[in-house]
């Protein structure tokens, strides 16, 4: 019996210690982590797409609940007018998901540009999606109601040679962005207008 009590006491104390320590570390690092996620995952892509804006899109952001998913939109201003947004979607690539940041001009409904954020594609082949400017620049300037599928599937996107699956992944992510944008447009416009004021 004594042994039982001893075991329970030690285990409880240990758990309390561990819970306390973790909670403390968690509180200490929480804000830093959020910043890091923005800085390393999203910032380079956003900067590339919204290169000529007058504000900091990382600061001017809002969130919309889409079904169960929370999407973060980053707003860019040109000449004081908030007319550009970017958000991230994903598509299935050769090995795992490909993250794609998509920038859209909400006044003309045109794609400003897209940029691959995360991928785990084969080095030298699929990884070109990130480095090869020719492939992703195809999207820039296209109207939002164009077909973003690859040419073989009846769309307008040329595939990268040697990396068809990756190209399809990127095109899928772009199509997803298209759907989300069409579905959420009223909400996006409302939130953007609020931010601009």
């Amino acid at each position: 019996m004594r042994e039982m009590i001893n075991m329970v006491v030690v285990l409880t104390l240990l758990s309390v210690f561990s819970g306390g320590l973790l909670a403390a570390v968690r509180t200490g690092t929480k804000d830093k982590i959020e910043q890091q996620v923005l800085k390393f995952q999203k910032a380079p892509a956003i900067k590339q797409i919204l290169s000529d804006v007058s504000n900091d899109p990382l600061q001017d952001r809002f969130k919309i609940m889409d079904n169960d998913q929370e999407l973060t939109f980053f707003v860019g201003k040109h000449d004081g007018k908030a007319d550009a947004i970017t958000f991230e979607t994903s598509g299935k690539g050769f090995s795992g998901d490909i993250g794609l940041m998509v920038g859209i001009n909400i006044e003309s409904d045109e794609i400003i540009g897209v940029c691959v954020t995360t991928h785990s594609e084969t080095p030298g082949l699929g990884s070109k999606a990130k480095d090869d400017p020719k492939f992703v620049s195809q999207f820039a300037g296209m109207a939002i109601d164009k077909n973003f599928a690859i040419k073989k599937n009846g769309g307008e996107i040329d595939v990268m040679s040697g990396a068809t699956v990756t190209s399809v992944g990127v095109s899928l992510a772009a199509q997803k962005a298209q759907e989300i944008y069409k579905r959420l447009k009223p909400e996006i416009e409302k939130q953007t207008a609020q931010l601009a004021n």
Partner: peptide, 16 residues
């Protein structure tokens, strides 16, 4: 597990 979680959080915050 406690120390692993500490490492996890610290790495996330400083070497993302």
């Amino acid at each position: 597990a406690t120390f692993v979680t500490v490492v996890e959080l610290v790495m996330q915050a400083y070497t993302y």
